[in-house]
């Protein structure tokens, strides 16, 4: 049980310890570059403020994006799939039993034929 062991995945290898060390080094380099920048904005200007095409910036309390608004494009593109998949989840116990019995019948037919 070596402390540093490489996961053998058959065709490749995965070593999290080396990965973590590499990421730490990368983060340190990133921090070094960042620390060379200006730490404060020049006072008296608007350089530090967000800019939204010249419009007024709404208060953050008003800008919460609700969960149902996310991935609208994805669900809209997949409308044909979802139009079929969602109605299948009827919530009726009879349908649940029927699906189970259906798969069972299919499996028995497969077992009998093959």
């Amino acid at each position: 049980m070596a402390l540093i062991a490489t996961l053998d995945t058959g065709f490749g290898a995965w070593n999290p310890v080396i990965w973590i060390v590499t990421m730490m080094v990368a983060l340190v380099i990133a921090w070094l570059i960042r620390s060379r920048g200006e730490s404060v904005q020049p006072p008296g200007t608007e350089a530090g403020k967000p800019y939204l095409s010249g419009n007024d910036i709404p208060y953050p309390e008003e800008t919460h994006v609700a969960a149902s608004n996310l991935y609208w494009g994805f669900t809209d593109a997949m409308k044909r799939y979802y139009g079929r998949a969602v109605p299948l989840h009827t919530g009726i116990l009879t349908d649940y039993v029927l699906w189970y019995i259906g798969v069972l019948a299919l499996a028995i037919i497969m077992a009998g034929v093959l």
Binding site: L88, G91, W99, Y100, G102, V103, L104, A107, I108, A111
Partner: peptide
């Protein structure tokens, strides 16, 4: 073979395999 089909579908249903996942 029939017994195998009965075993596997029942247990797969309890494990939540589609299309027996609705519950």
């Amino acid at each position: 073979k029939v017994a195998l089909a009965l075993f596997l579908t029942g247990l797969a249903m309890k494990a939540g395999a589609v299309p027996m996942h609705f519950w």
